[in-house]
Amino acid sequence: MSANQILSTQPNPTEGSKKMLIAMVGIGVICALLIVLSYEGTKERIEILKAEALEKAVFKVVPGISKTRIFELTAEGTFVLSDGKDRSKTLVYAGYDDSDAFKGIAIEASGQGYADILRILYGYDPEEQTVVGFYVLESKETPGLGDKIEKDEDFLSNFKALTVALTEDLSKIQNPVVPVKSGLKKNPWEVDGITGATISSRAIGNIIGESSAKMIPLIYSQKETFISAANPNSK
């Protein structure tokens, strides 16, 4: 209606352009204002929720802890405290119990599953030199088949005590974690597969195998870093 009138009775083109410019800028300003307002309004709560979700997962894979601190892996292979916001870094989460004793560490790892990239978290106890817990952070595996990796009791019990002991010179893992066919697990470093979810369960075994081969020697050699970070003044 009115838009049509403007178009038809337009005396000169610059007048029209000006009007368009004003309209777009005006709307842009209103929109920007609304977005900033809602961002500021929700920011705090979103951060709390995200941290909570992650903490819940860390607590699941490292039993008996009550708080966690985030570390990132630097290019030189050392671990430094981090705020965990830079998602491109490799992050690990050290867990401590009530008396600030270092109990274990949760390591994030990912790899190709059946449907898409699988993101998992697994817990490592340097004292026992075993993997002590496992949790799927992100998976798009087929419901009813591949998603058994999250639910199958027998499969999950693989990760209650999975040996990742180091060789004597601490340079690598003595027996790398390997997936085996369902029911054929003979050694404590093997991951028993699931019938009907062969590819997904094998993918988990491989992801942990690959990640642990790289991360665990590094973590073990820097145990002191994590122990001493238990009670820093920063928080």
């Binding site: 838009a3 403007i6 178009l7 029209g16 368009m20 309209a23 777009m24 709307i27």
Partner: peptide, 8 residues
């Protein structure tokens, strides 16, 4: 609606 020009 009366403020937004038809073209944009």
């Amino acid at each position: 609606r009366n403020f937004i020009p038809k073209q944009v």
